[in-house]
Write a protein that binds this DNA or RNA. Structure first.
Length: 224
DNA sequence: GCGACAG
DNA sequence: ATCTTGTCGC
């Protein structure tokens, strides 16, 4: 599976604007028994990207399957055009999965994006799978600071619209930025992120994917 | 014009 | 992302 590879920034933006119309921001899924996390890291020495998808049991959060791939960079990192860089390795990893997840939590924004089409939306639309965006830092929008208690949240606003939720996942710890990816409502996305953060700031899905990516990155650097 | 800008 | 200074935040 491959996405279209834009050859310019303008072309990429136009593609996002066209695809953004396909995003569904309501709950459109049945039961969620497995949930996956994704992460991508960059290796300076070889100019390659390492992408990982880890599938967890949605109830016990035990790991069911892991797939890690290493590929050459096809698009530079440009804020707002993040998905064109990270999607290729993630799609490759997804194709290899034996256990296709019922939902995916992405390491980045969904609708909380200048053109309402962040990585989570792009992955969700391309795979037609429910996705949630959960970023560590803000890309766009303004917000009040949520209370310091776990579960507290404030709306993320851009152009008079609610594009996401700033959610405190642990007491006195910096909040995360939750937004709709595809086929999952904002309120449902928020519930899932809370369920996936019983102990740490970031969702277990993201943490496991991050761990796999760094393990592969270390192995890559040990070679040459 | 300057600053800000997911990873 | 990664590294690092220094400590409100507009």
């Amino acid at each position: 599976m491959q996405i279209e590879h834009p050859s310019s920034e303008t072309e990429a933006q136009a593609l996002q604007e066209a695809l953004a119309a396909q995003v569904i921001s309501d709950d459109q899924f049945d039961s969620v028994t497995t949930i996956a996390g994704t992460d991508v890291a960059y290796d300076d020495a070889t100019n390659q990207l390492v992408g990982a998808i880890v599938v967890l049991d949605a109830c016990t959060l035990e790991i069911i399957e892991t797939q890690v791939v290493t590929e050459s960079v096809r698009f530079p990192y440009i804020p707002g055009l993040f998905s064109f860089r990270e999607l290729p390795p993630l799609l490759s990893a997804f194709e290899r999965l034996t256990h296709k997840p019922d939902m995916i939590v992405c390491d980045g924004q969904g609708l909380a994006h200048p053109r309402r089409f962040g990585l989570a939306c792009h992955l969700g639309v391309v795979l037609d799978i429910p996705t949630i965006g959960c970023g560590k830092t803000r890309l766009t929008g303004t917000h009040e600071t949520p209370l310091e208690t776990r579960g507290a949240s404030t709306p993320l606003i851009d152009n008079e619209q609610v594009i996401g939720e700033v959610l405190r996942t642990q007491d006195n710890i910096k909040p995360v930025y939750v937004s709709v990816g595809h086929k999952v409502s904002l309120s449902t996305a928020k519930e899932w992120i809370l369920k996936l953060t019983p102990k740490y700031r970031l969702p277990e899905t993201t943490r496991q994917a991050d761990q796999q990516v760094n393990k592969a990155l270390k192995a890559l650097q040990a070679q040459g």
